[in-house]
Simulated assay, not measured.
Amino acid sequence: MSPSNLQEPTATDGRTRPPQVPLSIVTCLYRSRPYLDEFLRQCDEAAGALGITAVEYVFVDDGSPDDSAGWVRQKRRERADIRLVELSRNFGHHQAAVAALAHARGERVFLIDCDLEVSPGFLVELWRRMGETQADVVYGYQEERKGGVLERWGGRVFWSAFNRLSDTAVPPSVVTERLMTRRYVQALLSLGDRNIFLAGMMYWAGFKQLGVPVRKLRRSGASTYNLARRLALLGQAVTSFSAKPLYASLWVGGVALVFAMANAAYVVVRKLLHPEATLLGFPTIVALLTAFFGVLMIGLGVIGIYVARIFVQTQQRPLYIVKHIEPSDVEPE
């Protein structure tokens, strides 16, 4: 599709947005400064290999503590195809990715992390497969996870737990990098979720989606996703896309009640058959009360998580707050 064939989209308030371009490359910035020069160079090479001359780059600064935003500003003095969206603070990778998609104007949108774990050259393969299959989303996935034993094992456990507990199945070892059509991006942005788990939202939205294997490299610095953040993400992911933990707490309570009734029946029958036998005493009562208390607290904890999700959703707070945009005359979707 050539730029001359693109229509000028109109905002809901009647204002005309700038013309769309064939491709938007969007990424999030958080401690990203060491990778940006090489990232931009490889992106330029990928777009050149596809013969695309009109590309926009959307960099979203997610409250990065380094000079990533300063680097983008410097590049903007040299190139008009680069845009900077600064958030007011660090809102998280998924929220920043939504902000990047909301500010992209391309007919196709390439979402990629700028840490070079996946080469921007992957865009060439995604573009080719999208053209061949007419898919709305072509995403990358790892056939074999990168990293050490703990990282590979943790990734498998994460996706296995999510798919078992969730009502939305997500292919395991999926990566951030994906090429999307304009209509898919608009549908994704319309969901209105406040409890964000982007991978689940992307598959819940539907449309024709195709996976392409990709090899993910080790990044030179330490990952910002430690074990605690991964566990927190798993909890948010499951409770955002499934009510199964609520049913699980019901079953756990039911099983505990059955065991308690069985134990009580055993004590009564034993006393009837052997009147001389000593009743099981205080330790048994303490153990049963402790078990019941634990089951009760688990059930209340699960319910509390869902109530918290409802609270966040009904607050209707924005996913992110934009502090500054360069250029400032561009309207988001």
Results as ranks from 00 to 15, higher is better:
304 G>E: 02
320 Y>Q: 09
65 P>F: 06
72 V>C: 11
201 M>P: 01
195 N>Y: 05
173 S>Q: 11
154 G>S: 13
325 I>C: 13
282 F>P: 01
46 A>Q: 01
324 H>F: 10
204 W>R: 12
255 V>E: 02
270 R>M: 04
271 K>S: 11
170 V>C: 08
170 V>R: 01
203 Y>E: 15
68 S>D: 04
101 L>Q: 10
308 A>Y: 11
113 D>Y: 03
193 D>H: 15
210 L>D: 02
245 P>E: 03
83 R>M: 12
293 F>C: 12
40 L>F: 15
71 W>F: 15
171 P>T: 09
150 L>P: 01
93 H>G: 10
297 M>P: 00
268 V>A: 12
309 R>W: 09
43 C>A: 14
83 R>Q: 14
204 W>P: 00
6 L>R: 06
279 L>P: 05
295 V>I: 15
137 V>W: 02
332 P>A: 07
125 E>S: 13
260 A>T: 14
52 I>E: 03
86 E>R: 15
48 G>E: 13
141 Y>S: 06
5 N>F: 08
311 F>V: 11
124 V>A: 04
76 R>W: 01
309 R>S: 10
27 T>W: 11
19 P>T: 05
30 Y>G: 06
18 P>S: 12
91 F>H: 09
176 T>C: 10
154 G>W: 01
330 V>E: 03
241 F>N: 05
288 L>S: 11
305 I>D: 04
101 L>C: 11
322 V>M: 09
245 P>G: 07
277 A>I: 00
74 Q>F: 04
164 R>P: 00
177 E>S: 14
133 T>I: 03
146 K>V: 08
309 R>L: 12
52 I>A: 02
36 L>Q: 08
224 T>Y: 05
226 N>I: 06
33 R>F: 12
289 L>F: 12
266 Y>V: 06
70 G>H: 07
39 F>Q: 06
130 M>K: 02
73 R>W: 01
236 Q>W: 07
119 S>R: 04
58 V>I: 15
67 D>S: 13
93 H>V: 12
203 Y>G: 03
70 G>W: 03
226 N>H: 11
109 V>T: 15
327 P>H: 03
83 R>I: 04
103 H>G: 02
178 R>H: 04
98 V>A: 07
121 G>F: 04
223 S>W: 07
76 R>T: 08
221 G>E: 13
322 V>T: 11
277 A>D: 03
288 L>P: 00
333 E>Y: 15
278 T>N: 03
77 R>Q: 15
41 R>H: 12
53 T>L: 12
81 D>V: 03
91 F>V: 15
298 I>M: 13
88 S>N: 12
159 W>I: 00
302 V>D: 07
